[in-house]
Amino acid sequence: MTAITSTRTALPARHGLRDAVGAGVILAVGIGCHYLFPNSLSFLTMILSVSLLVMSLDLVTGVSGVATLGHAVLYGAGAYAAGIASVNGISDPLLLLLIGSLAGLLAGIVSGALILKGHGLPQLVISIALVQLGYEGVNKASAVTGGSDGLAGLSIGPLFGLYQFDLWGRTAFWLALAIVVVVAVLLRILARSPFGMLCKGIRQDPVRVRAMGASSYVTLLKMYAISGVVAGLGGALQAVSTQVVGLDSITFTASAEALVMLIVGGTGTIFGALLGTFVFMWFEHAVSAANPFHWLILVGILLIVVVLFAPRGIYGLGMRLFERKDG
C-alpha cells in the first residue's frame, strides 16, 4: 500500500475567496480598460461577449470533457434570436438578452442531444456538422436573417429606460462587464456544485458514474443546456451591443477559435476561459494592427508557446506559480 500520509492541499479550499478575488480582478481590469482605452470600448465589449461563448464551451469541454468544434451554433442562435426579435419590434435590451438566452437553451438541448450520442471523433464530426448546418440554414433563410449581408436595422432601446446605447459603446460595455462578472462567478459555483462534480466525474470515467447510479447522458445534456443559455446570452449581447448580426457569429471558425482561446487560458476553471479570450483577442488585435501581413504567424507562435510551456493554460500556469509561492 502506498498511502501518502501528508495532508498536502492538492486543490485549495478557498474557493469563495478565489471567486471574490477573481470578480474583483475582472472588475478592476474592466474599469482600467474603460479609462485607458476609451476608444476601444466596442472591441472590449466584443471580447466580453465572446468570453461568454468561451466560458460556455469550458462548461462542456473543460468541465465535462465533451469534444466539440461547433459551439458557435449556440452563440449564433442567441445572436440571431435577439436580432430577429429586435427588427420585429422588441427593443428592450434585457428582454432581448433573455430571448437570446432562451434560443441558446433550445439550441443547447437540440445540439447536445445529438452530439452526446457520439464519443470522441464522431462527437467532433457531429458538432462540426451542426455548426455547418446552422450556418447554411441562416444563410439560406435570408428573408429572416439577412443571409450573407447580415441582419441590420436592430433598434435597441435604453437600458432600464435610462441609458442609451451610445456611439462610444459605454452603456454596452458596462452592461457586458456586469454580465460577465456575474456569469463567471455563477459558473464557478456551478462547476464545484454536486452537479458540476458529477460532470467532472463523467469527464474522467463515464462508466464509474454509471456504477454510481447516475446517467452520463442526462447529466451532460443538462450541462449542455446551461452552456447554451450562457452562449446564447453572449450572442445576444453581441447583437445588442453592435446592433448587427453577421454570419461570422455561427461559423466553424468561430467555434475553433473559441476552443483555441479556451486552451490558451486553461480549461475547467471558467476564469481561464475569460483570460484566454482576453489574451487571444487582444494579442490578435494588436499584432494584426502592427503587422497586417504576417500577424497570423505570430498568433501561431503564441499558441505553440502556450501549449508547450503552459499546457494547463495561462491561468493554470499562474495558479501553479501562486500555489508554489504560497507554499
Binding site: 492538492a10 486543490l11 479550499a13 464545484r192 456544485s193 454536486p194 462534480m197 458529477l198 467532472k200 466525474g201 474522467q204 470515467d205 464509474r208 456504477a211 454510481m212 447510479g213 447516475a214
Partner: peptide, 26 residues
C-alpha cells in the same frame, strides 16, 4: 440501490471532498 464496485471507482483527479460532493445527487 447503492453499489460499490470491485474496482474502487474513485475519481483520481478529484479531491476526497469533491469525490463525495459528486455522489450527493440531490
Amino acid at each position: 440501490l447503492g453499489y460499490v464496485p470491485q474496482t474502487r471507482d474513485v475519481f483520481k483527479t478529484l479531491t476526497v471532498e469533491e469525490n463525495l460532493v459528486s455522489g450527493l445527487k440531490g
